[in-house]
């Protein structure tokens, strides 16, 4: 049933992030199949939130655009379900826990399954609180993606042991956003993961250039890019699709180079 692991099979995964409903749900419906077409191996769709404490300014502004344009959790589900047949790669939701909690955990997961969503990433639900959603995710066959950060240290083993789908490796301190340099020793983080599990590891936060994507994909199983894509969406608005796909092709090619390196 679950397709997340397939995204990493025999290849390095390129994982784009977009905020659902930014700048409109019509654009989201066009972007999802276009991202797949451009080489995405898995797509993260953010549910816009009024107070996204883990996001930097770029994604915060995307959330504001989406909410101002009238995006709601229900409308986002509807939009995804309208295009789900055109999408063959796994989709995961990136959502703050309040969106799930207020929607109703069961009802939320049920709709995820109906829309072909494979998993959820909840950035403000750490390991110690994951019991809030773990059971209901299991019940509906959705994978609950865990995160590790540069500050996780001894927590990495504990988190990795129970990780599902893939492990989201946060490359930098702070919030999401483009960074000129990634200073964390990501390879070392992943080594610690490898001590306990073979789960695919994808690196996110700060990646914007093909060079960074390739470097991260060399030490990990995939690269996640959010803010750099959201910036293009912000710049081109309703006309963003060709600009986004052009960028995604370049990034996917860079990630593929990392495959050959191995």
């Amino acid at each position: 049933m679950n397709r997340i692991k397939e995204a990493f099979e025999n290849k390095k995964a390129f994982i784009p992030f977009i905020t659902g409903g930014d700048p409109s749900l019509e654009v989201t419906k066009k972007l999802l199949p276009a991202l797949e077409e451009a080489g995405a191996d898995l797509i993260e769709v953010g549910i816009p939130f009024s107070d996204p404490i883990a996001e930097g300014p770029v994604i915060q502004e995307a959330d504001v655009r989406a909410l101002s344009a009238g995006c709601t959790t229900d409308k986002l589900f509807d939009a995804i379900s309208e295009v789900q047949e055109q999408i063959h790669i796994p989709l995961v939701f990136m959502t703050y826990i309040n969106a799930v909690y207020t929607y109703g955990k069961e009802r939320f997961m049920k709709r995820c399954v109906e829309c072909g969503i494979s998993g959820v990433i909840v950035p403000d639900m750490p390991f110690e609180e994951k019991h809030e959603l773990a059971e209901v995710c299991r019940q509906y066959g959705l994978e609950l993606v865990s995160l590790i950060a540069p500050t996780s240290h001894d927590r990495i083993c504990r988190i990795a042991k129970e990780a599902e789908g893939f492990l989201y490796c946060v490359s930098s301190l702070g919030v999401t956003g483009v960074r000129s340099e990634i200073t964390t020793n990501v390879a070392e983080m992943i080594e610690r993961v490898r001590e306990v599990t073979e789960i695919p590891c994808a690196v996110g936060f700060g990646i914007s250039t093909p060079k960074q994507a390739r470097e991260m994909a060399e030490v990990a199983d995939g690269a996640i890019v959010g803010s750099a894509i959201v910036k293009i969406i912000a710049a081109y608005g309703e006309e963003c699709v060709p600009h986004v796909t052009k960028y995604v092709r370049e990034m996917k090619a860079a990630v593929a180079l990392a495959e050959q390196g191995h």
């Binding site: 883990a54 403000d124 750490p126 609180e129 950060a149 996780s152 927590r155």
Partner: peptide, 19 residues
Amino acid sequence: SKGRFGKYGGQFVPETLMN
């Protein structure tokens, strides 16, 4: 989970802040 007051409370912060 830690710091519960009945069903309320907890520690819902990003992994980066857990340490």
